[in-house]
Simulated scan of single mutants.
Amino acid sequence: MGNTFGKLFRITTFGESHGVALGVTIEGCPAGLTIDENFIKTEMQRRKPGQSKITTQRKEEDEIEILSGVFEGKSTGTPIGIIIRNADQKSKDYSHIADKFRPSHADYTYFEKYGIRDYRGGGRSSARETAARVAAGAIAKMLLAQKGIKITAYVSQVGELSLNKNYRDLDFSEIENNIVRCPDPQAADQMIQLIDSVRKDRDTIGGVVSCVIENTPLGLGEPVFDRLHAELGKAMLSINAVKGFEFGSGFEGVKMRGSQHNDAIVKDGDQIKTKTNHSGGIQGGISNGEDIYFRVAFKPVATIMQDQESINEAGDSVTVSGKGRHDPCVVPRAVPIVEAMAALVIADYLLLAKSNKLRDII
């Protein structure tokens, strides 16, 4: 339960942080799609641990193995199976919490739900599970590229340091030029210094990842319970450490009046467009052809290198000491995860849109 996402373009992930491997099964990928393994590897490199001084120092190359669904470089229309083998587990780092619950982790809730838990790195609740999502998201991106749809995420805030610029004023080519993945070099330097300072204090800090989906076709989304923004919200809130999601004007929109917030509809040549885009490219749960943009808030990583008060499985008060290898701030590595989940949602709705039109079926 809870390990499958999507309706037509559907993924099921499996594996634990300190198990043999992580993996994903992708169903619904149309036959004949060129599968670029190098692109998948590039996406995996963006998410992998140990890539800089401001990320966890666990060393995983995150090499993928495609087990099924691809023949001579193209999808066959059958389930695509991918695994990512774990290599640098240090399970002994977690022996001190074998019977203790770490504050703000899933340790206690998993134990109460299942009566058993894999304490090694959090098991299934570990953010390492997202490696499988990024692999699947890379294939979804390949599908979307056929339609010219582009998804770009970047770090827009760390702690109180916020990049208060419209995404249209940013140079997205700068995102991968720094270790924090912020498209503004000056802001990136400040964010890196802040994260490094927090790391040296043996603490953690949160942040925000912003995402833009360009060239989304008109008409993606379903009425009422399956609105496009609702599914995007579910996708983002399913990512470890996410505490908030807003799209378009979001919470700032409450400060505006309707006369300011409404997006006037105009004709630009042969195209119907809106003068502004406070709606974030979605109206009534259906894409309107404008850019879709949203923000995702990540809490500070729960594991800190400090002593904390907690209890053990017997209900006794204990002290939990932070050990192991952990990110001082998750947002630099969360960028490709946000993109992957957005790609999975848009790919799914793209296939749903085609199935809803009789002329595309017969």
Rank of each mutant, 00 (worst) to 15 (best):
G50E: 02
R85S: 09
I97M: 05
L67D: 01
A347M: 11
E63P: 01
P183Y: 05
V158I: 07
M256V: 07
H326G: 14
F225T: 04
G81T: 05
G284I: 07
V338E: 04
D99E: 13
M142A: 00
A340S: 09
P103N: 06
I82R: 09
I40R: 04
P223E: 12
F9H: 09
Q190F: 10
E222G: 11
I139V: 11
H105S: 13
S68D: 00
Y167P: 00
T303C: 11
Q193T: 12
M44V: 03
L22C: 03
M236W: 07
K273S: 08
S125W: 00
G315R: 12
H278W: 01
E61R: 10
L170N: 01
Q190S: 15
D327M: 11
K273V: 14
I311Y: 12
Q306F: 14
T55G: 03
I11E: 00
G115R: 04
I362P: 09
D36P: 06
G253V: 04
M341F: 10
N86L: 08
K141D: 04
F172R: 02
G248E: 06
T319D: 06
E16A: 01
N86Y: 12
R128H: 13
V198R: 07
V254H: 12
A347S: 15
P79H: 12
G50S: 03
V320Y: 02
A135V: 05
V338I: 12
R128F: 12
E246P: 00
I64P: 00
A98W: 02
P185S: 10
S210G: 01
L351H: 06
L8T: 01
K74S: 12
K357A: 10
R102L: 08
K150D: 03
H261C: 01
P103T: 03
I116Q: 14
V320W: 03
V158Q: 01
R359G: 04
E214M: 11
Q146Y: 07
A106N: 03
A138S: 13
K234R: 15
R257C: 01
F5V: 02
L220F: 06
R133F: 05
G206M: 06
K100E: 09
I265Q: 07
A131R: 05
I175A: 02
D107S: 02
T274G: 02
C182A: 03
L350P: 02
G50D: 03
E63W: 09
F9E: 06
I362S: 13
K234F: 09
I54F: 11
G15I: 00
I149E: 00
A241K: 10
T130E: 06
I205H: 05
I26S: 02
K150I: 03
K299A: 15
G315N: 14
Q190M: 13
L22P: 00
P336H: 11
R133Y: 06
E290P: 01
G121H: 11
P79D: 05
G281D: 07
I97H: 04
P103Q: 05
Y119S: 06
R133H: 11
R46Y: 04
Q190W: 09
E214K: 14
L170V: 02
D184A: 00
K323E: 14
E65R: 14
G269R: 01
S197H: 08
E43G: 03
D316F: 13
L358A: 08
V330M: 15
T204G: 07
G322H: 15
V155K: 01
S104R: 13
I40H: 08
F225E: 08
M1D: 10
R102W: 07
A334P: 10
Q146T: 12
T56Y: 03
